[in-house]
Computed example of a mutant assay.
Amino acid sequence: MPDWTGAKREEIQIPARDGASLRAIVYGPGTGTPGPLLVYFHGGGMVFGMAEAFEVGAKVLTEQLGCTVVSVDYRLAPESVFPTAGNDAWDSLKWVAENASKLGADPSKGFIVSGASAGGNLAAVAAHEAADAKLSPPLTGVFLCIPFLVHPDAVPEKYKPHYNSWEENKDAMILDQRGMLWFFDQYKVDPTSPLGSPLIWPSGHKSQPPTYFQICGMDPLRDEGLIYESILREECGIATKMDVYSGIPHAGMDFLPMHSVAAKALVDMKAGVEWLLSQKP
Results as ranks from 00 to 15, higher is better:
162 H>F: 15
143 F>G: 09
150 V>T: 10
166 W>V: 00
177 Q>L: 10
156 P>M: 04
152 P>C: 04
195 L>T: 03
188 K>G: 05
188 K>T: 09
196 G>E: 08
218 M>K: 12
215 I>C: 06
219 D>T: 00
188 K>L: 04
204 G>I: 04
174 I>K: 01
175 L>P: 00
173 M>D: 05
189 V>R: 00
167 E>R: 14
202 P>V: 07
166 W>A: 02
184 F>N: 14
199 L>W: 09
170 K>G: 04
141 G>Q: 10
174 I>S: 00
167 E>M: 10
186 Q>Y: 04
149 L>Y: 10
175 L>D: 04
184 F>P: 05
144 L>H: 05
155 V>Q: 06
207 S>A: 12
205 H>V: 01
216 C>I: 00
138 P>V: 00
195 L>V: 02
218 M>D: 03
185 D>K: 15
173 M>F: 11
199 L>H: 09
167 E>H: 12
145 C>Q: 13
157 E>V: 07
164 N>V: 08
208 Q>A: 11
169 N>W: 03
178 R>S: 12
174 I>F: 11
152 P>S: 06
179 G>K: 08
171 D>F: 14
168 E>W: 03
141 G>S: 10
197 S>G: 06
181 L>N: 10
216 C>K: 00
181 L>C: 03
158 K>D: 02
165 S>R: 01
205 H>N: 04
168 E>G: 11
210 P>K: 09
183 F>Q: 04
141 G>N: 08
179 G>T: 15
145 C>K: 06
148 F>N: 13
154 A>W: 08
163 Y>V: 06
175 L>E: 06
211 T>S: 12
178 R>N: 13
218 M>E: 01
176 D>R: 01
192 T>N: 13
189 V>Y: 01
193 S>P: 15
178 R>T: 15
189 V>A: 08
140 T>S: 13
148 F>W: 13
166 W>G: 02
149 L>G: 10
194 P>T: 13
198 P>I: 06
177 Q>V: 03
190 D>P: 10
145 C>F: 01
190 D>M: 02
208 Q>S: 11
172 A>W: 11
198 P>T: 12
218 M>C: 11
207 S>P: 02
160 K>N: 07
